[in-house]
Amino acid sequence: MKLYDYVLSPSCYKARLMAALTGVKLDIRPVDFHPGAEHRGPELMALNPAGSIPILEDGDLILTESSAMLVYLAAKAAPQWLGNDTALQAARVQQWLSFSHRLTGSLGAARLHEMLLRPGDIATLQWQGMAALRELEAGLVEQHIRGQRFLASDRPTIADVACFPYVALAPDGGVSLDPYPSIRLWSRAIRSLEGFIEMPGIHRLHELKPEPVLDAGEA
């Protein structure tokens, strides 16, 4: 499976993270998105006329929507991540998968504006981002009351992977995460998962490892 990837793109990171969590090995093809705008070049436009990345290629299957990639990776390697045990759970997964596009359009666009100088009405984007974070916080509070740590169940699902990257990187776009204690706990729960990988802007949870000591004789 080949992923056309940009290391700073939260949508590409969704696919990388899902693959890491489910133990799928991806063949990564780096794309010079910035500054080279390679995603708008002929080779990638032939694969995805929309001119966006990520693109996931597996045989003659070409996926250009990150949510579809999450479904594909989970269904192939670890179906429990699909979160379709019950009608309620399946609906919640779909609810948050769709919601995740609002995160891309608000927090993601604010981040591109603040970091890579892309155009946009920054005040509106930040305000929309804050509104989305409040919805997520309220949803997580309710899940916590139900005794569930993740968005659709007490186990992580593709819904969590779909929402996590743009949320965790909200500060890159000038949107603070300080006011959201439940998002903070949820983010830590995701970052503590077996197989979790970071992307730039999301630091390692150093507390997961005890303070390492240097063995005598080791340099």
Partner: peptide, 17 residues
């Protein structure tokens, strides 16, 4: 320091530990 990490009874700064 609120970006830092807790190990045991200590809080460490994320920048230089």
């Amino acid at each position: 320091l609120s970006h830092g990490f807790v190990r045991g009874e200590t809080l460490s700064c994320i920048y230089h530990g």
